[in-house]
Design a protein around this nucleic acid. Structure first.
Lengths: 240, 240
DNA sequence: TGCTCAAAACCTGTATGACATGTTTTCTTG
DNA sequence: CAAGAAAACATGTCATACAGGTTTTGAGCA
C-alpha cells in the first residue's frame, strides 16, 4: 500500500539532483556533522560533483524544504535541528489528496498519545507538568473562544509529547497538528451544549492532574476516554 | 524541543521558492487533485507567479524530493501516491545527527506495532495473513543468512502494518525501516547462540499465528515480548 | 473516412553567465 | 591594537540556451 517500489530513503533515483542530495546527506553522515555544523558551499559541491550550480542548488533547496538543513542568504547551509518539516507535509498531502482519512489520523494519535501521556506521567519535569496544566487552564479560561481553545488544546498535546522525552513522539504528534487545526472545529461544533464543551475541557484537566500526580495508568485512561469522545464526535459529524 | 518556531507546515518562510511551494500545494488542495492528476507546467507556474523558472523549478524539485509529486523528463509533474519519502529522511537525519537514539526509535516502534499487530489480527485479509506467515517462514528457512533474515524481518513488520489497513501506520513503520536496516545486525550478534537466534525467529512465528487466528490480544502480547527482547539485545550491545 | 507515422509543439534536465544582496574575512588606517 | 572600509565569499534570482523525452498535430495514404 505504501512504498510499492523497493527503494530506500535515499535510493539512486536517476538524475543528477538525487545524486547530489545523496552526496550531501552522505557528507553529513561521514563527517559526523551535528546541528549547526556548516556544509560545503554550493561552489565547493559544484566542483566536487562536477555538475552545474543549478543541480547543486536544487539539491540544497530540497534538503532545506525538508528542513534537514538551514539555508539563508550569504551564509553557508548548516545542519538543521530536528523539525517536523517534511513530516507534516507528508501527512497533510495524504489527507488533502484523500489517501488518509481523519479517522485514521485519530487512531494513530490515540495509539501514540496513550503512550506519551504515560511516559509524561513518569518522566515529566516540574516545569513540564506546570506547562501542561497551564494549557488545560487556558482552555478553561477561554472556553467561549473556540479558536483559542483549539490552540491551547494542540499545545497541550504537544507539551505532553515533549514531556515524554522522546523526540520521535514529539515529531509525529507535531506533524499531525496541521491536520488537527483543520478538523478540530468540526468536533467542537458537534458538542452541542455548553455543558458538553465544558466536559471536554475538563477531560484535559483530568489528564493534566494524572500527569502531575505521576500516575501513568490513570493518565492513559483519561487520554483514552478523551480520544474515544473525540472520535465519536467526528463520526457524529459524518467524518469518514 | 521540536518546532520551537510557531510555524506550520507550509508557513510563509521568506523567499520566492517557499511561496512557490505553497502555491503548488495550494493548487492541489483547491483543485482537489488526487494521485496521478497533472500539475501545471513550470512555464505556467512561472507566468502565474511572475517569477523565474529557476524559482519554480526549485519548488517543484523540493516537492519531488519529499515525494509529494512525481516528476520525469518531458512530462508534467503529477500528484504522487502516498510514500514514506520525506518521512524516512527526517528519521534518518535525526539518527545520524544523534538527535534521536536507536532506543527511542524502538520505543516508538513498540508503541505503534502493539497496535498494528492487534489491528492486523482483526482486519487482515486471508492474503495478508498468508503473506505475514510467509515472511516468518522465510526467516526460518534462511536463519543462517543474517542479511536475508533481516530483510524478511523488516518485510514481516511492514506486512503487519499494511494489514492494519491504516496507511499512516504503514507510513511510519516504513519510515523506520532504513534505521532498522542499519542496526538490526547488532541485535542479531548479541544473540550469541544459535538456539537464541532460533527463538527470536520463532517469536515472529508466534506473532504470525496469533494474527492468523484473529486473536489481537495474543498477537499484541507476542509483539510486546518480541520488542522487549530486541531492546534488551540492543542494550546488551551497548546501544544508547 | 480512417489509419499511420513523421513533424511540430511542448516539457523537463542541465549548463552558463550575470548581477543583487547578505556575510565573513582581510587589510588599512588612525 | 582597535575600528572601519574594502575585498572575498556566499546565496537569491533572473535570463538564455540547448539536449532529449513526451504529447499533439497534421499530412499523406489506404
Amino acid at each position: 500500500m505504501v512504498s510499492d517500489r523497493g527503494i530506500g530513503p535515499d535510493e539512486t533515483n536517476p538524475g543528477l539532483v538525487s545524486a547530489a542530495i545523496q552526496a550531501i546527506t552522505q557528507h553529513i553522515r561521514v563527517e559526523g556533522l551535528g546541528p549547526g555544523d556548516l556544509l560545503p558551499s554550493e561552489a565547493d559541491m559544484t566542483r566536487k560533483l562536477s555538475v552545474s550550480r543549478t543541480v547543486v542548488r536544487e539539491a540544497f533547496r530540497s534538503l532545506s524544504a525538508m528542513r534537514l538543513i538551514d539555508m539563508s542568504a550569504g551564509r553557508r547551509a548548516s545542519v538543521a535541528k530536528l523539525d517536523i518539516g517534511a513530516m507534516s507535509m507528508v501527512i497533510e498531502h495524504g489527507v488533502t489528496t484523500e489517501q488518509i482519512s481523519i479517522q485514521q489520523v485519530y487512531d494513530v494519535r490515540r495509539t501514540i498519545e496513550m503512550r506519551t501521556v504515560a511516559l509524561a506521567a513518569l518522566r515529566r519535569t516540574d516545569a513540564e507538568a506546570a506547562e501542561i496544566q497551564k494549557c488545560a487552564q487556558l482552555m478553561r479560561e477561554n472556553y467561549r473562544a473556540p479558536e483559542i481553545v483549539m490552540e491551547h488544546d494542540i499545545a497541550f498535546h504537544e507539551a505532553i509529547a515533549r514531556a515524554s522525552h522522546n523526540p520521535v513522539f514529539s515529531l509525529i504528534i507535531n506533524a499531525f497538528s496541521g491536520v488537527t487545526r483543520r478538523t478540530w472545529v468540526i468536533g467542537w461544533r458537534t458538542r452541542a451544549t455548553e455543558e458538553e464543551q465544558i466536559r471536554m475541557i475538563e477531560g484535559h484537566a483530568d489528564i493534566a492532574r494524572a500527569i502531575v500526580a505521576g500516575n501513568p495508568q490513570l493518565a492513559a485512561e483519561h487520554m483514552a476516554a478523551h480520544f474515544d469522545k473525540s472520535v465519536k464526535a467526528l463520526i457524529d459529524a459524518g467524518i469518514a
